[in-house]
């Protein structure tokens, strides 16, 4: 320690080394690129493989050729799948479930979050924590008790809740509502209290404060929650597998697996095509909302 200081003190004064900050930045960038590229390869390999396979015939998939190259590209898988009434039913079921679940979840969780974040009532803090704890319970633990409840309701009222695509509309919110509510509580809590008070004095009621101030201000959070909610209800596998069985009641993830795998015959080309087509809607929604999200964030950010 002392020698080091002494050296600095006695050694000739080193000239300022210009550009050392830029050099440091450059090195950091190299490493960033290295890891980013590693991750991109890691995460993009499966979809790329799916895409390549979806363009092949069954014969070519089975043949011993380079799996990363298509020698006889064909759209036959796409044509077959999209002309299958069954596949379109899966798609329709999935879309209906997702749209209804997203709508229900957003309405419920926005209202719940608003009341938990703002209308300080007895037990609101405990309830907010409870909402989060609910989210921590994995679905694999929930589906058996849910099954029991459905059976119980069936015994009691005679309403059959098993094997209908629309029961998923009741099931998915058990996953989406807690998480979305929790996200929205965070967003709403970050809105300064004076904003509601200003609105209150301006003559707004609670509903108007929610719709005209909170929702527009918390729009980025709402969009994030919507994306999450859509993804969950679009991609969930366990619930539809457990609760639906008839081919006309299935949603995409289960439908692809159960109808395209016949015994030990795997129709790889169509499975890959179905998976790709199934993955498209979340991607499209994500891209669309992301643009909107960023536009909303940057609007008016520049000082005039």
């Amino acid at each position: 320690m002392t020698t080091a200081t002494a050296q600095i003190g006695t050694g000739e004064r080193s000239a300022v080394r210009y550009g050392s900050i830029a050099r440091g930045r450059k090195r950091t960038l190299y490493w960033s690129y290295f890891f980013l590229i590693l991750f991109v390869i890691f995460f993009l390999m499966p979809p790329v493989y799916m895409f390549i396979t979806s363009l092949k015939t069954s014969a070519e998939i089975g043949a011993v050729t380079n799996p990363w190259w298509v020698y006889h590209p064909t759209l036959q898988n796409y044509i077959d799948l999209l002309s299958q009434a069954q596949f379109l039913t899966f798609f329709k079921n999935s879309a209906l479930v997702a749209v209804i679940v997203v709508s229900v979840t957003m309405v419920v969780s926005i209202m719940a979050a608003f009341s938990l974040a703002r209308m300080k009532f007895w037990g609101s803090g405990t309830l907010a924590t409870g909402v989060f704890l609910t989210y921590l319970i994995p679905e694999s633990l929930l589906f058996i008790p849910l099954f029991k409840i459905f059976a119980f309701i069936h015994d009691l009222t005679g309403i059959e809740l098993i094997n209908h695509w629309w029961v998923l509309v009741f099931l998915y919110p058990t996953l989406t509502v807690p998480f979305c509510t929790w996200i929205m509580i965070g967003y709403f809590a970050s809105i300064p209290k004076e904003l509601d008070e200003a609105a209150l004095i301006d003559g707004a009621g609670y509903i108007q404060i929610l719709t005209r101030v909170f929702i527009p201000v918390a729009l980025p959070g709402i969009i994030a929650a919507t994306i999450f909610c859509f993804t969950v209800s679009w991609a969930n596998f366990l619930y539809p597998l457990a609760f639906t069985t008839s081919a006309d009641q299935l949603v995409l993830p289960v439908g692809i697996v159960t109808t395209l795998i016949k015994g030990d015959v795997y129709n790889w080309g169509q499975i890959m095509t179905g998976a790709l087509l199934g993955a498209a809607p979340p991607l499209i929604i994500y891209a669309f909302l992301m643009d909107y999200y960023i536009a909303g964030l940057t609007a008016g950010a520049t000082k005039g």
Partner: peptide, 20 residues
């Protein structure tokens, strides 16, 4: 009487302008 019916206007320390 609730705030909106008191016919008052308030200026807050942090202005509390609606950001959107």
């Amino acid at each position: 009487v609730p705030p909106k019916d008191r016919d008052i206007a308030m200026v807050f320390q942090n202005y509390a302008l609606y950001p959107h």
